[in-house]
Design a protein around this nucleic acid. Structure first.
Length: 725
DNA sequence: GATTGTGTTTTA
DNA sequence: AAAACACAATCC
């Protein structure tokens, strides 16, 4: 009897063998006995020769698919992923599937709830609904075309929907979604804007590579018409009857984005985002797999969507950190996209106004074709960016006098003001408020990171530590500390300072919930708030025409962070914010509060722009022997006993002591050294040879898993880590 | 002696 | 990861 090799969703880096009456196609799902339970696994292979030293293999209980849920290319991609990130294959395949397929659900389409207007609803006018604005809007939309219940719930409150059902203007029906096998016949390629020279070059470069592998990096300043380049490249792919998969950042997937694609080409667009039901997710998967969806737009995990006629991959805002999964299978969707484009033999387009240094490096060394869009459409102008020296300045709620004054002026002119706290990659350095001096490690010339829990300064580049000094080494001042202020504190302070204006705090906490963020953005654009206090979430994809003053606090936290990517992220943030605030006739200003106004990276960014900054920063990374010029892997460990976490990492570290090409740094405390009562430590592996690092990891992992402490301490490996929190 | 809790081992 | 297994502590 043939022996089937099955990837089972357990955290073991191996496959399991079963018997079956006949060979099975790789990529199909099977139900198999596993100890006392039944699990859903994926067939990897059929052989005659068992590797398992036993002649009594169990049998497969049930074959769940007629044809592969994974194509051979996808299977290969997942196997690469499993190797590269040192993650169990069963778990990789499991996380690559939509939830309902993981549970053994059918891979055939199921009925979905739709909303469409009734006869009465078709005749009804918006006026008949009085001042129920949302209801008017929804009815109007459904009069145009029906929509699935859940897509409506993503835009409207369920009460709005129910109200219209109650009034008998719309109705809900369940049916199997109609399949559009013929989208090519109604594809609209008529009217399109005439591209400028730069756009035209980019478009022709990309379209000339349709049908083969090629990678492109579009470095296009805000307003340079990056999207139009995508659209015209997509058009060429669609006219050949092929599909395009577009990845967007988690926060950037708005109904308007989707609308733009759907309207331009008059074809169905599949959407994959985090609050889709399991059912809808499989449906998109199935339709795409059947070639019925010419365009698929989705966030990170959409990179796993199968396509029967793949034509092109696009990763928009490719620098965005949401492409890296931060738990479990820690993959980077952008890097996987490169791999997928190679395997599928199709072009890959990466686009950003502020490319990641990794991508820029690949473009500069010729791995990607570099397409630059500098020309701005229209007369868009940007806020003037300036630094504000706050050395020895009295601060109120983290704000200097000059800034408070400016805030007052702008508010008085009926403009909005945005205060931005940069918390990402924040690693407290010991800074003197009087003179701005930062205590540095003499060996590395890098700032020490302040660890309050351990009461010491530690260098995250070499691991050396010293006691916290009482006085500034430079001016002997005593005002030493980690500057830091929370969003809540700032919000309260601003209310004290400007009681006559309303403020809103936008962070991942306050924006949680389905429509919270959109509601807040609406209110901001209607001028219901004058003071906006935000974190990361504000910089992505939204435009604030009435904001004329942007203030960035905690700039130093990024400039002196042990997270070497913090400066890059700050620069991306500043540039993205500058592109989104103000408008042509009201360009406004942007201030960065810092203790180090002459910091070379900061000066380069403000004087010469992101593109120049990025090239300089790359050079600096090269001198410091940091990624992308070297390669890293990070072991994280956490335990309520700091010594145990430390010991495990020491044991792991010794597994690499023989490798000439791999250098270990640590164990060191994580930037957030204690979280939920657990001490968090990390060990960084570095190499200037990616293959050597891969090889060393592959050799060491089996031994590491056998370490006695490895079962007692929670630990994880992060290949190509993006942060050190 | 049974019961409850904790850590270890196995899964083909 | 989940369940079984093994062993120790606890209770009536």
């Amino acid at each position: 009897m043939p022996i089937i090799r099955v990837a089972v969703p357990v955290p073991k880096r191996q496959f399991f063998e079963y018997q079956h009456t006949s060979a099975l196609e790789p990529g199909i799902r099977v139900r198999v006995p596993f100890g006392p339970r039944q699990l859903i696994g994926v067939v990897l292979d059929t052989t005659e020769q068992s590797l398992w030293q036993s002649d009594k293999l169990k049998s497969i209980s049930e074959v769940l698919d007629a044809t592969g849920v994974f194509s051979p290319i996808q299977l290969k991609l997942c196997q690469w992923l499993s190797q590269y990130y040192q993650h169990p294959i069963g778990d990789v395949l499991h996380s690559a599937m939509p939830v309902s397929l993981r549970k053994g659900g059918s891979s055939q389409p199921k009925p979905v709830s739709y909303l469409h207007v009734t006869d009465a609803g078709q005749r009804a006018t918006p006026e008949s609904l009085g001042k129920a604005r949302k209801q008017q809007q929804l009815l109007g939309q459904l009069q145009q075309s029906e929509a699935s219940y859940s897509s409506i719930l993503a835009q409207y409150a369920s009460t709005t929907v129910k109200a219209l059902i109650q009034k008998d203007l719309i109705t809900q029906v369940e049916r199997i979604p109609s399949l559009d096998t013929n989208w090519l016949t109604h594809l609209n390629i008529g009217d399109k804007p005439i591209p400028n020279v730069e756009q035209a070059i980019a478009i022709s470069q990309i379209t000339s590579k349709i049908g083969q592998y090629a990678s492109f990096l579009i470095e296009g300043v805000t307003g340079s018409g990056k999207t139009e380049v995508y659209l015209q490249a997509i058009e060429s792919v669609l006219t050949q009857g092929k599909q395009v998969l577009i990845l967007v950042p988690e926060i950037g997937l708005t109904p308007q984005t989707v609308q733009r694609f759907a309207e331009r080409f008059n074809v169905p667009v599949g959407i994959l985002h985090s609050n889709l039901t399991d059912n809808e997710r499989v449906l998109v998967w199935q339709q795409s797999n059947a070639g019925q969806l010419p365009i698929i737009i989705g966030t990170r995990s959409a990179i796993f969507t199968p396509m029967s006629r793949p034509g092109m991959l696009i990763v928009d805002e490719e620098h965005d950190s949401s492409y890296k999964q931060q738990d479990g299978l820690r993959y980077h969707a952008r890097d996987l996209a490169v791999m997928r484009a190679v395997q599928e033999n199709i072009p890959l387009v990466l686009g950003s106004a502020t490319p990641a240094l990794e991508s820029l490096n690949n473009a500069l060394n010729g791995k990607y074709q570099h397409l630059i869009l500098n020309e701005r459409a229209g007369n868009a102008s940007h806020p003037k960016q300036q630094v504000l020296d706050i050395r020895n300045q009295p601060l109120e709620y983290g704000l200097s006098k000059g800034i408070i004054e400016r805030i007052g002026q702008h508010l008085a002119q009926e403009s909005q003001v945005m205060l931005f706290i940069n918390r990402r990659g924040y690693a407290p350095a010991l800074m003197c408020h009087t003179c701005g001096h930062v205590e540095q490690c003499p060996g590395c010339n890098k700032p020490y990171t302040l660890h309050k829990q351990l009461y010491k300064l530690q260098c995250h580049h070499c691991g050396s530590a010293k006691a916290i000094p009482k006085r500034c080494q430079s001016c002997h001042g005593t005002e030493l500390g980690a500057m830091g202020i929370g969003t809540e504190q700032l919000e309260q302070g601003l209310q004290q300072l400007f009681p006559q204006y309303t403020s809103v705090r936008i962070d991942s906490d306050s924006a949680r919930g389905k429509n919270r963020l959109n509601d807040m953005l609406d209110k901001i654009n209607r001028n219901e708030y004058q003071i906006l206090i935000g974190t990361q979430i504000l910089s992505k994809g939204h435009h604030f025409p009435n904001v004329t003053l942007v203030v960035i606090l905690e700039v130093d936290g990024a400039l002196f962070s042990a997270d070497y990517r913090a400066a890059e992220h700050l620069a991306q943030l500043v540039t993205q914010l500058a592109g989104r605030a103000g408008r042509a006739e009201k360009p406004g200003e942007m201030w960065l509060q810092t203790h180090d106004p002459s910091h070379p990276l900061l000066q380069d960014l403000l004087n010469n722009g992101y593109s120049h900054f990025a090239r300089y920063a790359l050079l600096e990374r090269q001198h410091a022997m940091l990624p992308p010029h070297t390669y890293q892997a990070l072991f994280r460990a956490q335990s309520s006993d700091a010594r145990l976490a430390n010991q495990l990492l020491m044991d792991i570290s010794s597994q690499f002591s023989y490798s000439k090409h791999v250098q270990c740094i640590g164990p060191l405390p994580a930037l957030m050294e204690k979280r939920q009562g657990k001490f968090r430590m990390q060990l960084v592996l570095m190499s200037n040879n990616r293959a050597a690092l891969q090889h060393a990891l592959a050799q060491a992992m089996p031994n590491i898993e056998q370490l006695p402490l490895a079962t007692k301490v929670r630990w994880a490996l992060d290949v190509d880590p993006q942060d050190f929190m």
